[in-house]
Amino acid sequence: MTVLNPLFAISAQTIGITLTLIIIGLGLAWLFWRSFSGKEVDRRIIFIFIFFSVAAPILFKISFTFKAIPIVSALYDKVESLPAGSTVLISYDFDPAMAPEVQPMADALSRHCLSRDLKIIYMCLFPTGQGQLEETFRTVVREEFPNKKDGIDFVNLGYKAGGEGVLNVIVTDFEKMFPTDVNSVPYGDIQVFDNIKSCQNLDLIISIGGGRPGIKEWVLFVGDPGNVPMAAGVAAVVAPQLYPYFPNQILGLLGGVKGAAEYENKMRDEHEQFKDMPTPATTMMGPQTLAHIVVMAFIIIGNILYFRNKRREEG
């Protein structure tokens, strides 16, 4: 394995960043200039710009940090305030397609809870959520917390079909819906459930996802009737619909990659042990930021074109 000289590595990254910004900047300037002469931009050119603005920050690790907004801090503070031994349920209510946006928050939350010695009950309302759950087990639970024991510190209940029907049952009785965990261990033999009979005995429930069934169903069938503290991590497009739920029905919300990045940054800022943790959401904020800037540039170009053509028609 070749070990790069740090100086060389830094300069390669700097060169990469500079080149990227120059290519994107010059390209956009050229398109601005073209737009003044009334030439439309082909959609393929837009695609190339988006490709560069997404790929370059990943290759050259361009990232931006964000201060956590109150709705994100609220969830962080809740996890921090729970005493060791408290039980948290994390429900993976998403599929692989949504995973790039919400898997980072699921991983960060698992890491945060396990490091604070909270017990975690994992489950999912999406059939394909089970595969995503495996991903967290592989990259966070088994990798970073090898001493945590299945059944004692966490349990994986897996997927159960029925959506709202499942929630309606577990709000009063876990065993009825999950007589065994995903590895066929009987409910009675799982230590995590020693003091837990239903969702009402939990200290916090976090639904990660954004589709249906998702956080709205959790609030409707479990949070409100069972008087259980709820929080959520959702895709950015869903977040605005959930703002009114804060702070009464949900005590905190991570919205999209930005919310996840804010959570990761908060973990890194406030705990020495998380300084070197993987931060996929923060990494993703680089592409997202640059892509937003490119989209804004194209909106401006589109408007220049529009007014230019309008004037020409009027003239």
Binding site: R43, I46, F47, I50, F51, V295, F298, I299, I301, G302
Partner: peptide, 12 residues
């Protein structure tokens, strides 16, 4: 990501 950009360019 690609389609949002091209749709924004046309629509906004």
């Amino acid at each position: 990501a690609f389609f949002v950009a091209s749709a924004s360019y046309r629509a906004f």
